[in-house]
Amino acid sequence: MTTTPVLVAENVVKELGSGAGLVIALKGVSLELVPGELTLLMGPSGSGKTTLLSILGCIMAPTSGTLTIAGQQIAGLGPEELAKIRRDHIGFIFQSYNLFPTLNAIENVRIALDVRGITGFAATSRAEEVLRDVGLGHRLTNYPGNLSGGEQQRVAVARAIASSPDIVLADEPTAALDSENGHAVMALLSRIAKEQQRSVLAVTHDPRTLGYADRVVRIEDGKIVGEERRPEGLNAPEITDLTKRRKIHA
């Protein structure tokens, strides 16, 4: 089955710092994300995972290379235009959840809709819907301080998918969670990718997440060094170690 990629990064280079402190964080990375897939981006610390996530999420501009999101080239766009791309196409999930401590669960989701111009009853009912969808229908008015880590991350997931973005980018979504909650969040991300046909990319070095991946992209020293794909017909979490499977890039 051929699916049109919603995100295409080609030969992305990112230089950080200058002069003697210049670091080349990404050295010509190419990557595509297609709808319906949960992709894991794995690599050791300092390999460029978060830098790549920032660029794919239109938070950081690449030094060179091209990035196309939903058919739109982002090269040369200003901060406000990049913010619009994020509003229209991208949902974020952060390692530390980044919920607003002064807003309850439903308000935390509503604010993501509010910045997109969805307000009032429409926003409230959509926020309720996604919170119920992630299993938090009974925690709508709880504040982050009264939610467990797993519940907070599920609120963050609900916030990321509330506006039905094409792409969901997650930064170490299970890093702060125990095993049970880690699995629950990954199962949720996998379900979002499959049922809602979203492209989900999760940066992680948590081996527990492998079983949920459709694809694993490995990055080292600013370069993609390998990519493994789950064989057709194999359902999560039946596979646990994709590293033993087919390597596309050496």
């Binding site: 999420g57 938070i59 901060p79 406000e80 913010a83 619009k84 791309i85 994020r86 509003r87 229209d88 991208i90 974020f92 952060f94 980044n98 607003f100 604010i111 993501a112 910045v115 997109r116 916030r159």
Partner: peptide, 16 residues
């Protein structure tokens, strides 16, 4: 500031 940065990452405009 981190909450405002989160808002920005979520796609809010500077005006918001």
């Amino acid at each position: 500031i981190h909450e405002f940065a989160t808002l920005r990452a979520l796609g809010s405009s500077a005006g918001y």
